[in-house]
C-alpha cells in the first residue's frame, strides 16, 4: 500500500458523493450501495478490511478506557485540572480513532469494489507521534515531581 496515491479526502473529490451533504455518512452506512459500484471483491478481502476496522476500534476503546481510568483512579495533580485535561484528551482521541476507523474502512471497501489502489493514510503516524509526545510529557512531569 503506497502512501502517495490518495492521501487526500477521496470522498470530497469524487463527483458522485458531492451531491450529498452526508456523502461520507452514506458511504459509511452502505459502501456497496452508494451507488452500486464495481464488483463484489473476494469475501476474504472484505473480512480482512473488517478485521482492520475492528483492530482500530479496539485501539479507540483502549484509549477511552485509559481516559476513564485517568479520571477515576488518578489522584488530583499539582497542576489544576491537569487530570481532567488528560482524561478528555484520551477520550477525544479514542472517539477520533473510531471515527477514522469507519471512514477508512468504507473508503477501502469502495476502492476494492472499484479495483482502485487502496487509500493510504497518515493517521497511524500522527497517532503514534501524539502518543509518544504524551509519554514524553508524562515522563517530564514525573521527573519534575520527583526532583521538587
Amino acid at each position: 500500500m503506497t502512501k502517495s496515491a490518495s492521501c487526500g479526502p477521496a470522498i470530497l473529490t469524487e463527483p458522485v458523493d458531492n451531491r450529498w451533504v452526508f456523502g461520507a455518512l452514506r458511504l459509511w452506512i452502505d459502501p456497496e450501495k452508494t451507488p452500486t459500484v464495481g464488483r463484489t471483491p473476494d469475501y476474504r478481502f472484505s473480512l480482512a478490511n473488517e478485521r482492520t476496522f475492528l483492530a482500530w476500534i479496539r485501539t479507540g476503546l483502549a484509549l477511552i478506557a485509559g481516559g476513564l481510568g485517568v479520571a477515576q483512579f488518578l489522584p488530583p495533580l499539582p497542576v489544576p485540572h491537569l487530570r481532567e485535561i488528560m482524561a478528555i484528551v484520551l477520550l477525544v482521541l479514542g472517539g477520533l480513532v473510531a471515527l477514522r476507523a469507519v471512514d477508512h474502512w468504507a473508503r477501502t471497501e469502495r476502492a476494492m469494489r472499484l479495483g482502485q489502489e487502496l487509500p493510504g493514510s497518515r493517521f497511524p503516524a500522527v497517532l503514534a507521534v501524539a502518543v509518544a509526545l504524551g509519554a514524553v510529557a508524562l515522563i517530564v512531569a514525573v521527573l519534575i515531581q520527583a526532583a521538587g
Binding site: L25, Y43, N49, E50, I64, G95, L99, V102, A106, E109
Partner: peptide
C-alpha cells in the same frame, strides 16, 4: 461483508 453493523459499531463507540 459487514456493512451497516460496522458504521453502527463505530458510532456507538463515539
Amino acid at each position: 461483508p459487514g456493512r451497516r453493523t460496522i458504521a453502527a459499531y463505530a458510532l456507538t463507540t463515539i
